[in-house]
Computed example of a mutant assay.
Amino acid sequence: MGSRMVVTGIGNGLFKPDQQITRAEFVKILARGLGLKPESGSSPFSDVSSSDWYNEAVQTAYAYSLISGYGDGTFHPQDIITREQSMAIIAKAMKMTDLRAKLPRREAAVLLSPYADAASASGWAISGIADSLHAGIVTGRTSTMLAPKALFPERKLRFSCRD
């Protein structure tokens, strides 16, 4: 992802693979990974300014209906993204790329039934969680724990680079 400029690090030649991802960083990575045409302009979110480094990524994700923000008109770009938030966004990307249409239909309740904590997921996130699990893009924290409210990534990630 680094060689394809999807992930560029945090600046000054630094890349912190153990750092958790903010909502702004997540949508920037996803928009770049999908190769979406960057959007700019005034933000639909009161907490995203046109001068913010993430404005273009948030604008792009919003323009492509990957995000909708909170009911109060904010996006909370600096909050660490949760597993359920990331799965909901991933599921929207799956629909946009037709990946969702290629999967056989399965009920969300069936897909979530192995997870003892599935009931703790927010109602708005259920279908996105189910789609992400069904596609194998995201898995439970364990075979019986989904951890939808946990921060993403909740475990430290390790990346290796090869030339």
Rank of each mutant, 00 (worst) to 15 (best):
163 D>S: 13
69 G>E: 00
28 K>D: 11
76 H>N: 14
4 R>L: 14
30 L>H: 04
92 K>F: 02
70 Y>E: 08
55 N>T: 08
152 F>N: 08
8 T>I: 10
145 M>A: 13
130 A>N: 09
50 S>P: 09
109 A>D: 14
127 S>T: 15
94 M>F: 11
20 Q>W: 03
42 S>Y: 04
142 T>I: 03
121 A>R: 02
126 I>V: 15
126 I>K: 15
150 A>Q: 04
3 S>W: 07
69 G>P: 07
84 E>M: 11
111 L>D: 02
18 D>Q: 13
113 S>A: 15
22 T>Q: 06
75 F>H: 06
14 L>Y: 07
6 V>Y: 01
10 I>G: 13
126 I>C: 06
60 T>L: 01
17 P>H: 10
158 R>T: 15
81 I>K: 05
59 Q>K: 13
71 G>L: 04
106 R>Y: 05
57 A>F: 00
35 G>P: 10
49 S>P: 05
32 R>I: 02
156 K>V: 13
154 E>R: 10
163 D>G: 14
107 E>T: 12
109 A>Q: 12
65 S>G: 13
132 S>V: 06
39 E>P: 07
53 W>G: 14
60 T>S: 02
62 Y>T: 13
141 R>H: 06
77 P>N: 05
139 T>Y: 00
111 L>S: 09
82 T>L: 05
102 K>M: 12
131 D>C: 11
94 M>G: 14
47 D>T: 09
160 S>L: 13
22 T>K: 02
24 A>E: 03
100 R>C: 07
13 G>M: 04
11 G>A: 00
134 H>W: 04
114 P>V: 01
104 P>L: 09
98 D>I: 07
15 F>Y: 12
37 K>N: 12
133 L>E: 02
82 T>D: 05
60 T>G: 03
68 S>A: 10
46 S>I: 09
27 V>C: 08
128 G>W: 00
38 P>R: 06
